[in-house]
Simulated assay, not measured.
Amino acid sequence: MATTDRQATTLALAHALSAAERGLAVIPLSRTKLPALRSPHREDPAPARPPCHGACGRFGHGVYDASTDPVRIRELFAAAPRATGYGIACGLPPYRLIGVDLDTKTGTDSAAALRALARRHRFVLPATVVVLTPSGGRHLWLSGPPDVVVPNSAGRLAPGIDIRGAGGYLVGPGSRTDHGTYATAPGTAHLPPAPCPPPLLRLLLPPPRTPRRPLPPDTERHGHGLIQFVLGAREGQRNTRLFWAACRAYENGIGPALHAALLDAARTTGLPEHEARATLTSAAHLTGHHP
């Protein structure tokens, strides 16, 4: 490894240990901002692959490896000698961190969109930790209440605003990536993560689940697989899976009856309702139907 990489790993470890002293659980990250340790189950046959989140005792479970224990953190970094950054796990005590990621790569003014939301829903963004990203974006650190689980989302609040909640992580300040270094905004490094304003917290939570409407027997039998296909979508494939399932439903003559169930499934995966409705409409039109 090059000397500069060794120095970057040493600095990343130092920053990670400093974050852990503040009660923030951390993991080592690579230059691509991904967890630096590969899954120990990558060689397991897919059908037999266990749903393991670290119960096996080995490293390589992403955010589930996160720790505030300095001994464990040093072990994690020793196992990841090419790490140049660290991730901070969200949703864990004591802060139950919520990250508001204001992105600039979409070409939208995400900061202005957040201010507009604050005006519309009558909340004030508190003084809190702000991390500047190499692309010109910002991460706002907020803390959540102990009885609420905030999910991860992308663009659900507004274009360019992503949320890092339970099961997610934020790139910690001091991390070096392929695109530059993350740094704390002047005057915010000493601040604790401020409590999330209640009106904003309500916007971050998923809408309450509506009771599933019963489907006709034939639709239930043929549509179950399509609904499960949509529910299995990960971020980045939700629209594609929904569109494919909706096209199959309309081609099989059950599109109208399955519309509400597909919409519910898409919302469950985190797809914004307006996007899901637009995708369902596109599938109907493509197959010669009118939703």
Rank of each mutant, 00 (worst) to 15 (best):
L140I: 12
A233W: 03
S110V: 04
L114P: 06
G255D: 09
V124A: 14
L34D: 12
P198N: 06
A158P: 03
A113W: 00
K105T: 12
L157C: 11
D218S: 04
V131R: 01
D103Y: 06
P186Y: 01
T219I: 10
E273F: 00
T287G: 00
P93R: 07
A78P: 00
P211L: 09
S39V: 07
A249V: 09
P151Q: 09
V100C: 12
P256N: 08
G180T: 08
P198T: 13
P93Y: 08
H274I: 07
L170T: 09
R238P: 06
P70I: 05
T181Y: 01
T10L: 12
A20E: 03
E75G: 02
A12S: 11
D69V: 03
G160A: 06
Y86G: 07
A266G: 05
P216L: 13
A118F: 05
R115G: 02
G60W: 07
D103P: 07
G232H: 06
L157S: 02
G223T: 04
P81K: 10
P47D: 07
P195V: 09
H15W: 10
T10F: 03
M1P: 13
P145L: 06
D147R: 12
A19C: 04
T133V: 09
R72M: 10
L29M: 05
G54C: 06
G23F: 02
L97G: 04
H224N: 05
R115N: 12
P256H: 11
G62P: 08
E251T: 08
P51C: 02
A158N: 03
V149S: 13
P272N: 00
